[in-house]
Computed example of a mutant assay.
Amino acid sequence: MTKDVKLSNIKGILIFLVVLGHLLLVVRAGMEPLIVLIYSFHMPAFIFLNGYFAKNVTFKKVINLLLLYIIFQSFYAFITYFTHYSEAFTFRFTTPIFHLWYLISLACFYLVAISLNKIGKHRLWSFFIITGILVISIGIRWWATGFLVNHPQVSGQFLSIQRTFVFFPFFLLGFYIDYKTMNKCKTILYSFKFKLLGSSILIFGIVWLLSTNLLKFENAFYGFLQSSAFAINWRNFFEIEFQQYLIACIMIAILFALINQSENLLTLWGDNSLVIFLFHPLFFFVLRMYTSNLTQWNIFLKLTFVICISLFVCSFLVAISKWLCWITNPLNTILQFRHDRNKAALEE
């Protein structure tokens, strides 16, 4: 598949929002509406694109993701301890640190994609698999409430199980959209005459809805908190679940309508999104240690400061990405090392 600049640009704005969303947590007070808006769609949109690009995914990608998880889970175990993010040093692979849940979830998504490709995406057994995933996706947080109460030793983030199922529908949506349909959708959304006005109205309506109970929606959008954190009964739970998926889909459509397909800074960020994703928390943990006075600034200053830092983080990590590529693709690095060693042995 040839490079799609528009999709690279969308990935670019999404990875910027990932960085911005995390850094906003440092100066949280007054930033809640923006935080919740970002969290309502940035990971669903990323996972939707993961599904779209997973048409011919291989086991090598799964292995690479698991290696990345082992490496960075170990790395951030030390970072969180030395930056005082964790009160005690904890080193376990069953509870992902900070952003690393995404690597486990993506590995699971890819395994299902490989299975569906092997069975046949449109065969009856694939339909049963997808139906099962969707049913679990909708109900897992309701079921998890009782389970976690009865098993307090188990974390809601255990192996990213809840998040994996909560976000699975977005992956499947992207996976089942073919290239022709995607191109039609991009053309229709981008050529819509009143896209800016329509997008503004939709975003305003979404912000208004979210503002009715920011904490409730934030807890729902995280994906790993059980239903008791954002719903009082099963009707309220399913109402919020529906709103979560609907808002994310609307925001994904808005991205496709507003983002153009000319190469720019977003393209660079999108093409290097993995490097930015893996390393940006370093700035979060360090910034968190030295910005206690920042919370006293007014909202405009805090937002300006965090946006500037986010721009710097994305651009800086892209600038040094060529020196980090060996660690972002550990499987290839290992295979290349073995190849070079065997070649050297033969030459001797």
Rank of each mutant, 00 (worst) to 15 (best):
Thr291Ser: 15
His280Trp: 04
Asn50Lys: 10
Arg141Met: 06
Leu65Pro: 04
Phe285Cys: 04
Phe41Lys: 01
Pro169Ile: 02
Arg141His: 11
Phe316Ser: 01
Leu14Ser: 01
Ser315Glu: 01
Ala77Val: 08
Lys216Asn: 09
Ser262Gln: 13
Phe82Tyr: 15
Ser227Arg: 11
Phe242Lys: 10
Ser273Ala: 13
Leu148Glu: 10
Ile119His: 07
Leu324Tyr: 08
Leu17Cys: 02
Cys325Glu: 11
Glu87Pro: 06
Ala45Thr: 03
Trp101Cys: 02
Lys180Gln: 14
Leu49Phe: 08
Val149Asn: 13
Leu209Gln: 14
Tyr176Glu: 09
Leu24Asn: 06
Ala54Tyr: 08
Gly21Arg: 00
Val275Met: 03
Ile70Trp: 06
Cys314Glu: 00
Ile177Pro: 10
Phe89Glu: 09
Leu215Gln: 12
Phe284Tyr: 15
Ile35His: 03
Gly139Val: 05
Val5Ala: 01
Gln226Asp: 15
Ile327Tyr: 03
Val57Ala: 13
Asn117Met: 12
Ala345Phe: 13
Ala220His: 07
Leu317Arg: 00
Leu282Glu: 03
Lys55Arg: 15
Phe242Tyr: 12
Leu282Trp: 02
Arg341Thr: 12
Lys60Tyr: 12
Tyr110Asn: 14
Pro152Gly: 07
Ala45Val: 03
Ala344Tyr: 13
Val18Thr: 03
Trp101Ala: 04
Trp234Ser: 14
Thr145Cys: 08
Asn9Pro: 06
Gln153His: 10
Met182Ile: 08
Ala54Met: 06
Trp234Leu: 14
Ala144His: 06
Glu241Phe: 09
Gly21Tyr: 04
Phe305Tyr: 12
Asn329Ser: 07
Leu34Asn: 07
Phe128Gln: 05
Leu225Asp: 05
Ser273Leu: 02
Gly198Asn: 02
Asp4Gly: 03
Leu17Gly: 00
Leu7Thr: 06
Leu24Thr: 02
Ile119Asn: 11
Ile47Leu: 12
Pro169Arg: 01
Asn342Gly: 12
Asn272Leu: 00
Thr83His: 05
Lys343Thr: 14
Gly30Ile: 13
Thr164Cys: 10
Val57Cys: 10
Ala345Val: 14
Ala88Val: 11
Trp143Asp: 06
His22Pro: 02
Lys302Glu: 09
Phe284Gly: 00
Tyr85Arg: 11
Ser228Trp: 07
Thr333Pro: 08
Phe204Ile: 14
Gly174Asn: 04
Gly270Asn: 05
Gln243Gly: 04
Trp323Pro: 03
Met1Phe: 09
Val275Tyr: 01
Asn50Ala: 15
Asp271Cys: 07
Gly270Tyr: 01
Glu347Trp: 10
Pro44Tyr: 01
Leu287Pro: 07
Trp326Val: 09
Trp125Phe: 12
Ser155Val: 06
Val19Trp: 00
Ala248Val: 11
Ile13Asn: 00
Tyr190Gly: 08
Tyr245Met: 06
Leu116Gln: 11
Ile327Gln: 08
Arg28Glu: 14
Asn329Asp: 14
Leu301Val: 12
Asn236Leu: 06
Met1Leu: 08
Phe158Val: 10
Leu124Phe: 12
Asn260Gln: 11
Ser155Gly: 05
